[in-house]
């Protein structure tokens, strides 16, 4: 019996490297403080790339996500990322 591809929802969360000053995060944090969320700290603004894809397994969907993240979606010199994969 051959395996059948299933659909997965992949989410790739991208944020600036911890050692890189994040001006967007800083600007947003100041606004949050001014609006009363005084204890907010270490605010980072990143990106979410999400897509639906067919794969034979969650492992395969994750592996393909790592490949496209490194090829296109992130720049490892300035960014870090995390991947979430959910079967649909």
């Amino acid at each position: 019996m051959s395996k059948t591809a299933k659909e997965y929802l992949v989410k790739i969360l991208i944020e600036p490297k911890p050692e890189l000053l994040d001006p967007q995060g800083h600007a947003v944090e100041i606004a949050m403080h001014e609006l009363g969320l005084a204890t907010a700290r270490e605010t980072r603004v990143g990106k979410l790339v999400k897509y639906k894809t067919l794969a034979l397994s969650e492992t395969e969907a994750r592996q393909k996500a790592i490949e496209i993240a490194n090829q296109l979606l992130i720049n490892p010199i300035i960014e870090v990322y995390a991947i979430e994969v959910d079967a649909l």
């Binding site: 600036p16 890189l20 000053l21 994040d22 001006p23 967007q24 800083h26 600007a27 720049n75 010199i77 300035i78």
Partner: peptide
């Protein structure tokens, strides 16, 4: 830099 023909990367300006 993105193409790997020069090292490093250009990040968002620190001065916002």
């Amino acid at each position: 830099t993105e193409a790997g023909l020069l090292p490093g990367a250009l990040a968002r300006n620190e001065q916002k």
